[in-house]
Write a protein that binds this DNA or RNA. Structure first.
Lengths: 348, 348
DNA sequence: TCAAAAGTGTTATCCTTACACCCATGT
DNA sequence: ACATGGGTGTAAGGATAACACTTTTGA
């Protein structure tokens, strides 16, 4: 807990001491590259071909090297291009974590401590085809409980809820503080909308971390991870098939952030091709936000809100009447504050 | 632009190479500690007592040392406690930057490259008194153009707008691409609400960076900074009196983030004492969001929204009739999504 | 007494939800 | 013909912005 000696010495003027006195650390960069292909929300992963287990992979990532790249973002783009061939559009920082490795955690140990800066990078469907090193997977392969496109997912009612309920419950107060149980109950209520609370699609990370603690997802714990989790909680089937290690946390944060920002910024259009029909736009929003929430009002909101403008062209072969094609009206950026796809849940 | 050799070699499996191969970097932490005292929004700065110039200072900051602290946040709390004596409540990451020093930029050079993780930390008014090493200053001392509490600030109309308008204008096309000018015009429109665009109180950082580029704020440039700014743009009086160096950018981001989150999360209550009157709450919101926007409807929204509950007590000596005291109803966290102080501008 | 703030009540307006219905295409 | 998606209109309901007015204190 004590600071290194040289800091204490030079403490009085209270200014930060020169940075070169500090302990050197490796800084990592990693990217959750998200896209929507068809009606499926996808993420780009780099397969771990060396490994046997099918399904293993990692987000594109690499170390930040100030000698090579002036900015964090430049470094990120470099590694993404190198590992996946994808040229990123806009990116945004999601969070910065300590010790955020991929699925290889155990082997890499953490002797060289790492700080990872995590990015969200939406790309268009055209970018979303397997190429070079990249493989695209559905988000919902990693987080099936987040998929509300066809109503409440079954894995929630059938597996997660009962197990979490039990994991929380006061039945296990043995040597545990009641405060702990209370915290769990509260966290469960907030994250998984128990007792009349509303499901908040943005709380992706909170849900993932709860499931991780409860042992319902994550790496099989061959070496008991401290014994804090009772044996019985190891019984339920693991839900999260493909493995991402700590990168799953990053993906969860990125999805949460995307869901958040879709509502108040025009990010969806970074996921759309240049021209699109309103139906396609709606499907994309639904793929991201989960619940299939709206109806024809969606069209009115989007068009009336000045977010898009018709190109004059039409798309045929839509399965019905030909649809007008639209493009994003980038002028909204100049006109309106918070031009997102504001939406309240409806009943289809 | 080429990656270090060992990366190219181990490229094919496309997995991230072990982190210890990476270049070691110093990781810094710094905190924009924000509070509202009376009607004034304040930030904690650490004065640079060594220096002559009155007004110099820096945000509390220090290097992250994984040997000392397991998490970034623990390190942050340590340095803040050390330098200011303040015990932080909740904190949130705002951004991570490369080379973010305080006002000492020039001397520290950047030979040991630094990545800084920047935090926003709201604290209650009780914490907001000068103690130990901390000094509290109004935000608006640094960013007077952000202060819309008494209507549009004069420095905007009288100084900033004319100079920026000129700085943008096509008058200076000499050896400059028109695209550059267009970008400037657009950025000006967005950031400073030119031509019918609405003032967006959240774009604090965009405004600061524009002013910085235009030479209206920032350190006096004794050593021409590359000659990209014409001499005439050096004439306008500097607006930003106290100096923070790169930390000003951090402060701007933090203010923007706070303004953003006040509207959709119950962060204001982290800035309030345990009990308060609705008027005090309103004043606090106004101190942050700038425009004095609402009216008695504010009370209805806040109370009706279930954000607060009366304690039963009253406060006398309010300047008028005694006011009911309220406390934050922390249950909203369980009930509602996005429980912020949603507000639209009004006319007083 | 007045100024300042605390409160209460009411109305007009807008926004959005929800429903109903017609249009055009491909199978 | 019909299923599917495209597209228009409108009525009911809720939220809130705006206004008017009363109450209670301190100076």
């Amino acid at each position: 807990m004590d600071p290194p000696a040289h800091y204490v010495e030079s403490m009085l003027p209270a200014r930060v001491p020169p940075a070169r006195a500090a302990e050197p650390i490796s800084v990592g960069l990693n990217a959750a590259i998200l896209a929507v292909r068809g009606d499926e929300p996808m993420v780009a992963v780099v397969p771990a071909s060396r490994r046997e287990r099918e399904g293993d992979g990692a987000l594109p990532c690499g170390p930040f090297s100030p000698r090579q790249h002036k900015t964090l973002e430049a470094g990120l783009r470099f590694w993404v291009r190198q590992q996946t061939g994808i040229e990123l559009g806009h990116t945004r920082q999601v969070c910065t974590l300590v010790d955020c490795h991929g699925p290889d955690d155990r082997e890499m140990a953490s002797d060289p401590p790492v700080v990872s800066v995590c990015y969200l990078a939406p790309v268009r469907p055209a970018q979303c085809n397997d190429q070079d090193g990249a493989v695209w997977r559905s988000w919902y392969a990693y987080f099936p409980w987040e998929d509300w496109r066809r109503g409440k997912p079954r894995c929630l009612t059938e597996i997660i809820e009962p197990h979490l309920e039990a994991w929380t419950g006061p039945a296990h107060c043995e040597a545990r503080v009641p405060r702990e149980a209370l915290n769990r109950t509260q966290r469960l209520r907030i994250a998984f909308a128990r007792d009349a609370a509303a499901w908040d699609e943005e709380k992706v990370l909170e849900r993932y971390e709860l499931l991780l603690e409860a042992g319902l997802v994550g790496e099989p714990a061959e070496n008991g991870d401290g014994g804090h989790v009772l044996a019985e909680w190891r019984q339920p089937p693991r839900l999260c098939h493909p493995l991402l290690g700590d990168h799953a946390r990053v993906l969860a944060s990125a999805i949460g952030e995307l869901r958040r920002s879709v509502k108040c910024e025009p990010v969806i259009f970074e996921l759309m091709p240049d021209v699109f029909t309103l139906f396609e736009l709606q499907k994309t929003v639904e793929a991201i936000l989960g619940p299939h929430l709206h109806k024809q009002n969606f069209r009115r909101l989007v068009e009336g809100g000045g977010l898009v403008e018709p190109t004059g062209e039409h798309r045929f072969r839509t399965g019905g009447r030909p649809a007008r094609l639209y493009r994003f009206r980038s002028d909204v950026l100049l006109e309106r504050l918070a031009p997102g796809v504001r939406i309240k849940a409806g009943r289809g």
